[in-house]
Computed example of a mutant assay.
Amino acid sequence: HMLVDPDFHGFGVGRKMMELMQGKYKDFHQQMLTADGEAVDFYKALGFERTGKTEPMWVYAGNDH
């Protein structure tokens, strides 16, 4: 999970975290993620794109969603 406190959105914190992570895994042939809600546009700006007709699925026993 990558989370940035909403008070710090727009300051480049998430972008820097992603740049560091993508730099570490730059030689991998594939990078995948699950983007939630408003984060979709953020990840699109970093070069990620929706692929095919994939659907996110999970088995989740929590209560925060």
Rank of each mutant, 00 (worst) to 15 (best):
F11E: 15
L46F: 08
Q22M: 15
D27V: 00
L33P: 07
A61E: 14
P56L: 04
Q22F: 02
K44A: 05
V59M: 14
D41K: 15
G14D: 03
Y25D: 03
G47R: 11
M32R: 12
K16S: 08
Q22C: 05
G52K: 06
D41E: 15
Y25R: 03
F28I: 00
T51Y: 07
E49A: 13
G14L: 04
K53A: 07
E38C: 01
V13M: 14
W58E: 14
D36C: 02
A35Q: 05
T54L: 15
K24H: 14
A39M: 06
F48K: 06
H29C: 00
M32G: 01
K24R: 15
R15C: 03
D64V: 00
Y43N: 07
D64H: 13
F11I: 01
A39N: 08
G62Q: 05
L33I: 02
T51G: 02
V59G: 04
E49H: 13
K44R: 15
V13H: 15
R50D: 06
K44C: 02
K24L: 08
L33G: 05
M17E: 06
D36G: 00
M21E: 09
K16I: 00
K44G: 01
Q22G: 05
R15D: 07
F42S: 09
A45H: 14
R15E: 15
M18V: 04
T34G: 04
M17R: 04
P56H: 12
F42V: 01
Y25Q: 02
D41H: 12
E19Q: 13
F42A: 10
